[in-house]
């Protein structure tokens, strides 16, 4: 039993999806906490302070490399699972059981994940990439608060962000519980609480994220 086998076996793949997924869930929590500082409505003072810490602290920066590594692993294995699993049934059913036996979002993790990936490319390109580029080329950190305020005056951008948050929410409804199920923890008395916490997390975090562009667009915060 080699590590390569563990990496490629069906259970090995889902353990990777689960562990990287849990790490990404933790990231969402931190990202949401830091960005929610815009709601102090203090002209971005507290937010900029937090963003400065996140952008310059050595521990955070090293963790960031890990974050990208895990994100890429999650995407690669997710897409592999999606493609391989599609090939396991060559003749499709004439009548589908549809929602009678399973939830649509559980069957659509590949599509939901791809939507989030497309959103992520736009999102990273708009904020993270220019900021890090400016930092590494010696021009210092950018005014992220000002960039957000400007970007979210455009209704198209706001709609894309809200759509991204909705995709994330449905992805999480399945993903949160599934991560614990895969690690063998979603059993007996824990099953119910993991399901409930997962649904609450899937609603609250994407909702806070979605409120950010909306708050700028509607001038709730200046």
């Amino acid at each position: 039993m080699s590590w390569k086998n563990a990496f490629n076996s069906s259970v090995g793949k889902k353990i990777q999806m689960s562990l990287t997924g849990l790490f990404l869930i933790l990231f969402l929590l931190v990202h949401c906490y830091v960005n929610a500082m815009i709601f102090y409505n203090d002209g971005g003072e507290k937010f900029t302070e937090a963003a400065h810490f996140m952008g310059t602290n050595i521990v955070i920066r090293i963790t960031e490399i890990g974050l990208f590594a895990f994100l890429i692993l999650h995407i690669v294995q997710g897409l592999r699972l999606w493609m391989q699993n599609r090939k396991r049934r060559n003749t499709r059913y004439a009548v589908s059981a549809g929602n009678a036996t399973s939830k649509w979002y559980s069957r659509s993790m590949g599509i939901l994940g791809t939507l989030i990936l497309l959103f992520l490319i736009l999102h990273i390109q708009a904020f993270w990439a220019p900021n890090r580029f400016s930092q590494t080329t010696g021009n210092g950190e950018l005014d992220l608060y000002g960039m957000m305020r400007d970007a979210f005056q455009n209704i198209v951008v706001v709609v894309i962000y809200i759509f991204g948050c909705i995709s994330l929410a449905w992805h999480l409804v399945h993903g949160f519980f599934s991560a614990f199920q895969t690690l063998g923890l979603a059993m007996n008395k824990y099953k119910g609480i993991i399901k409930s916490v997962g649904v609450a997390f899937s609603i609250i975090i994407p909702l806070i994220f979605a409120l950010m562009p909306l708050a700028f667009y509607l001038h709730w915060i200046q």
């Binding site: 069906s10 889902k14 036996t101 399973s102 199920q181 895969t182 690690l183 063998g184 979603a186 099953k191």
Partner: peptide
């Protein structure tokens, strides 16, 4: 195929085998 915790198996199993078994297998 690989299991992605969809749960359709549990819904259709004539013997009511729970997906908690899959958690245990993992």
């Amino acid at each position: 195929g690989s299991c992605t915790n969809i749960g359709a198996c549990e819904a259709e199993c004539p013997k009511g085998i729970s997906i908690e078994n899959i958690a245990r297998l993992n």
